[in-house]
């Protein structure tokens, strides 16, 4: 029983990170119909910026907002400099259908190369904001540590803030309207392009939070978030790729599922398990567990 609860706790902590990455992918997909493979690059760039702040000030809590803000700025820049041109130019011909994939892939490579040029390829360690030594009750120490609790709490707060923005503010209404019916949103006076850029900025900050939260428990390298991108994508697909709640739920399902495979089956099966889950969801319930039917085609 104790082992069972420990596994669930670790799964929730891991799943929170997947959920944040899924949120970043979903925000962009809703507004632009692009699965943003460059999200791993954007997140790693903002994490490196956070790393610079940490190595100068030795303060994680200063690095956190800096990384989040640079993530948002990077996201907005990507939309303005790349995606707008791509949407305008590459809309016909044999490449049109895959142009978004190619463009974001190219951007991922570009950002990764720039990061490598500036900071080099060696693995770096992050200072832990709180300890990764598990909580102790009486004589037993569980694997779930304050750092995991921190990840879960921050993720919960981020999700809450996004939910409030989307459900309770005019900006959120504009974001939802531009994603749902861009033409009609434009007719009713919403500046759709600007709104979309804000959506990209939100996505960029969500990705940056995922990056700067997961890195202290791991290491930092130009490609250290690649697996997170894949897990985030799987989580987003489980959640239907359209819904913010779906992203969070998808992240948790994947996180807990993987934690159980790792704990009870074998640590070498994490990737095949995640891949099987992805294929199974796509074949059995392609619209995701939470999601509308129309999400598949586009």
């Amino acid at each position: 029983m104790e082992r069972f609860i420990n596994t669930i706790l670790i799964g929730i902590s891991g799943g929170s990170i997947y959920g944040l990455m899924a949120l970043a992918l979903v925000l962009v997909w809703r507004s632009t119909r692009v699965v943003n493979f460059a999200q791993a690059g954007q997140a790693i760039l903002s994490t490196y910026i956070g790393y610079v702040v940490i190595s100068h000030t030795n303060n994680y809590w200063l690095a956190f907002p800096v990384a989040v803000i640079s993530g948002a700025l990077i996201g907005a820049l990507v939309d303005i400099l790349l995606i707008r041109i791509m949407v305008k130019r590459a809309h016909q011909g044999p490449v049109a259908a895959i142009a978004p994939v190619i463009a974001t892939l190219g951007l991922l490579g570009l950002i990764r190369a720039v990061v490598g040029l500036i900071w080099g390829g060696d693995l770096r360690q992050f200072k832990l904001p709180v300890t990764n030594h598990g909580f102790t009750f009486g004589h037993t120490t569980i694997p779930f540590a304050p750092i995991n609790l921190l990840i879960v709490v921050i993720t919960f707060l981020v999700m809450l803030i996004f939910a409030l923005i989307f459900q309770r503010t005019n900006l959120g209404l504009a974001l939802r309207a531009s994603a749902y019916q861009p033409e009609i949103a434009r007719l009713s006076g919403i500046r759709v392009d600007l709104t979309r850029t804000i959506g990209w900025a939100f996505a960029g900050s969500a990705g940056a939070i995922a990056g700067i939260l997961v890195t202290p428990t791991n290491y930092l390298a130009p490609n250290s978030l690649d697996l997170l991108l894949v897990s985030g994508f799987v989580a987003a697909v489980i959640g239907g790729l359209e819904s913010l709640v779906g992203a969070a739920v998808g992240g948790l399902i994947l996180g807990i599922g993987l934690a159980f495979v790792l704990e009870y089956v074998s640590s070498s099966l994490a990737f095949p398990a995640a891949f099987m889950v992805l294929i199974a969801v796509l074949l059995v319930k392609p619209a995701g567990l939470i999601g509308s039917k129309r999400s598949r085609n586009a």
Binding site: V35, F37, I98, P100, V230, V234, F275, L282
Partner: peptide, 9 residues
């Protein structure tokens, strides 16, 4: 995009 993500994985 689904195919791209799956093959990327």
């Amino acid at each position: 995009p689904y195919l791209a993500g799956t093959t990327l994985a």
